[in-house]
Computed example of a mutant assay.
Amino acid sequence: MPSRQKKVIFCIAGLLSFGCALSVAVAIGTQFWVKGTILCKTGAQLVNATGPELDKFVGEISYGLFHGQRVKQCGLGGRPFQFSFFPDLLEAIPASIHVSVILFSAVVIIFSLVAAAFFMYNAFGNPYETLHGPLGLYLWNFISCSCGCLVMILFASEVKLHRLSEKIANYKEGNFVYKTHSEEFDRSFWIILFCFTVHFLNILLIRVSGIQFPFQESKETDTSTGAADLMY
């Protein structure tokens, strides 16, 4: 591929990686990872609420990685409450998984910035082999892609398997029991999926630019070396 087209591809991939870093950084600080509704089970059972009456006992909840908000509905009107995971909810949530989600999100930001820098370096600089050259481009994007996938898997397991919304709603609730009524991932979670897709596409762009995958290059090098040994 001509060098000008390769520069254009690397510049586009670099801008996409930089955009991913900014998007994930913004997503981490928001509370728009999960939104849903919480049913006050105790209150609904006390009055035998069904149909439209049940709406009086359905509150709302939304949260991110650090803080969130819930609205209690127990038949007496909504009561909003703000909460934070650190240090308030560490006893109630699976803390190891939650901290891992935050750490892997930070890794996505760091290596997205590294990938963006190396794309620009390969476009306008004089890269040499090893991590500054094609191998580095594949490596940084693969790390970002893998960590983005881990963030989604760990957070989804925390929410769905460990029933994170119910644990938040029932934290220090002595008189009422809350149950998840509806739940869905919000836009900040889908930003992680978008960034995962972008880094995967970046790997394809590197291949389209004419750079072989690292394991393909090693095979070709071994073959050529073996032929040279036979000649001599």
Rank of each mutant, 00 (worst) to 15 (best):
H67D: 05
F10E: 06
C40R: 06
N175C: 10
C149G: 06
M231I: 15
I192G: 11
S100C: 06
S112Y: 00
F119A: 00
S105V: 02
F196T: 15
Q73E: 13
G78Y: 08
V208P: 00
C149S: 07
V58G: 01
E129Q: 11
L193W: 07
F194K: 01
A227H: 06
K160G: 11
F81L: 13
I12W: 09
L15C: 12
E166Y: 00
A44P: 02
S96Y: 09
L150V: 15
F66G: 10
I38Q: 02
E158V: 01
Y128G: 15
F118Y: 06
P80M: 03
L230E: 13
C11N: 05
P127K: 01
T180V: 03
L201I: 15
Y128M: 13
V34R: 00
L16M: 08
N141F: 00
I93D: 00
K56C: 06
F213L: 15
E183L: 05
H181D: 03
L131W: 02
Q69Y: 04
F10Q: 09
A27S: 08
G19H: 01
E60P: 03
I9P: 01
V24A: 05
F104G: 08
G174L: 15
S62C: 06
P2A: 14
G125I: 08
L139D: 10
V177F: 05
N175R: 12
F81A: 12
F155Q: 13
A95C: 11
N202W: 11
G174I: 15
L139H: 11
E129I: 11
E173L: 12
L164Q: 04
A115T: 11
V71C: 04
C195H: 03
I153M: 04
N141W: 00
S100G: 15
L230P: 08
A44N: 04
A227T: 12
G36L: 07
S218K: 06
F215Y: 14
G210Y: 12
V24Y: 01
R4N: 14
K167G: 02
F194T: 11
D229H: 05
F213W: 09
D88R: 12
A123G: 04
L161E: 14
F104L: 08
F104I: 14
R187C: 12
D55H: 10
T180S: 11
I206Q: 05
S146A: 10
L135M: 07
K56V: 05
C195Q: 02
T37N: 07
N122A: 09
V99S: 07
F213M: 10
G148F: 01
L154T: 10
Q5G: 12
L65G: 10
D222P: 08
S144E: 06
G64K: 05
G29E: 00
L76G: 09
F111Y: 10
C74E: 15
S157M: 15
S224C: 12
F86A: 13
P214W: 00
A95D: 05
F104C: 06
V34C: 00
H199K: 07
Y63E: 02
I109G: 07
I12R: 03
I38K: 02
K172H: 14
I206C: 04
L139T: 15
